[in-house]
Amino acid sequence: WWVFGLDLSLHADIDVYQFQFFSELVKTKVGENDSVIIMTHEPHWLLDWYWNNVSGENVSHLICDYLKGRCKLRIAGDLHHYMRHSCVPSEGPVHVQHLLVNGCGGAFLHPTHVFSNFSQFYGKTYECKAAYPSFDDSSRIALGNILKFRKMNWQFDFIGGIIYFILVFSIFPQCQLDHILQDDSFSGHLRSFFGTVWNSFVYMLEHSFVSLAGVVLLLMLAFTFVPSKLALKKRAIIGILHVSAHLASAVILMLLLELGLETCIRHKLLATSGYHSLYQWYQSVETEHFPDPTGLRARIEQWTFGLYPACIKYLMSAFDVP
């Protein structure tokens, strides 16, 4: 048995020096009845199939034209799961008998179900003999990530909230939402609501600066994070759809928030105490618990030309819900 460790570097193939070394080794040392195991860092039989790509021409040349069926096993890691394929018996030479991904080294888990339809390599049919996690378990774990990611990374909500606030900064607040609540039917409410969403989006494109800049920046980031192996057109489409989904969510959440406030105001649950209610409460508590028999606060107000109480009042107004 021979074990060939190939360095594919970042080019998914061996260079001419490695090819020359291993081809000479096969011709001079490897016997006709010997068996060879080829080890690489990435399982390109899966990755090429997934990305609809062709790589490793020198490796293929070495296996098909020099080893000629003596490669019994190709083993790789990098993908953090276990998956073994074996060649289905058929007529003609078999260049590689078994394909093995052994990436369960303690890192995070990669899915297996995305490779469930892999079956062809070097013109031969392969069958998956084992996979960990199984295809069903992998699919179930992937679906669970939608909620588990947020549960495990709840701190990201702060970042997401800031991003969403920037996206709707220029169109917030919407002060005229009565038309949404005035329709008699549920379908009319929905029609008015999504019409307002569209009008807000158009307003952002035509008149806003901060929100539009946020959208452009987010679009650039979304385009960057799309895998570079995809075509430029596909990357642009995925990036635009991604940003559009976030923008729609941000606008819808903003309108729902304002509709909630509008509903509370209509039922007299808010806006019943007037402006600066928090400052008025502060003044009453201050007078009751912190008396000023010497009139110091009045003198400070006089010395600062009214700036001292005004600063407190308007700072509190930022946190005041009337």
Rank of each mutant, 00 (worst) to 15 (best):
I75R: 08
S170M: 05
Q120I: 09
G144M: 06
L100N: 02
W154I: 13
L143P: 08
D136M: 03
S119R: 02
V88G: 02
A131R: 04
C64K: 14
H44S: 10
G92K: 05
K129T: 14
S116D: 15
L143N: 13
H80E: 10
V54F: 10
Q120D: 05
S60Y: 14
S139G: 15
H61F: 12
H85D: 04
C64I: 15
V114E: 04
G56N: 02
A142H: 10
S60P: 10
L109M: 08
A142S: 14
W45Y: 09
L143D: 13
H85T: 02
E127H: 14
Y66D: 07
E91D: 08
L46E: 00
F158N: 14
Y126M: 07
I75G: 02
I163D: 11
K72G: 10
H44I: 11
Y132F: 00
N102C: 10
G106R: 02
I146P: 09
V96G: 01
H61D: 14
A142Q: 10
V96M: 03
L79R: 11
D137L: 07
P133T: 04
W154S: 15
P89N: 05
I163R: 11
G160Q: 13
L73N: 07
P111Y: 01
L73D: 04
L167Q: 01
L99N: 05
M83H: 07
Y66C: 05
F115N: 04
G106D: 06
C71G: 06
V59N: 01
N52D: 13
S55R: 08
R140H: 12
I171F: 03
N53E: 13
L99T: 00
A142G: 09
R70T: 05
E127C: 14
H61S: 13
R140V: 09
S170K: 06
Q97N: 04
W51M: 02
G105H: 04
I162M: 12
K148D: 13
P89Q: 03
I162D: 12
I63S: 00
G144P: 10
I141E: 13
A142D: 12
M83I: 09
N117E: 15
I171T: 02
C64P: 08
K148M: 06
W154G: 12
Y50H: 07
F135N: 01
L109I: 08
G144C: 07
K124P: 02
H98F: 00
S60R: 14
W51C: 06
D136L: 04
Y50G: 04
Q155I: 11
G69Q: 01
L73W: 01
C87A: 09
H110I: 03
I166Q: 12
D48C: 07
S55D: 00
T125D: 05
Y164T: 14
D78E: 13
H110C: 09
F115Q: 08
H81P: 11
Y82Q: 09
M152A: 11
D136H: 08
W154Y: 11
L143F: 10
C128Y: 08
A130E: 12
L47P: 03
L46I: 00
D48K: 00
W49P: 01
Y164M: 15
S138P: 06
V54E: 11
S116A: 15
D137T: 10
S134D: 03
G103C: 01
E127W: 13
S170A: 09
V96H: 04
G106C: 07
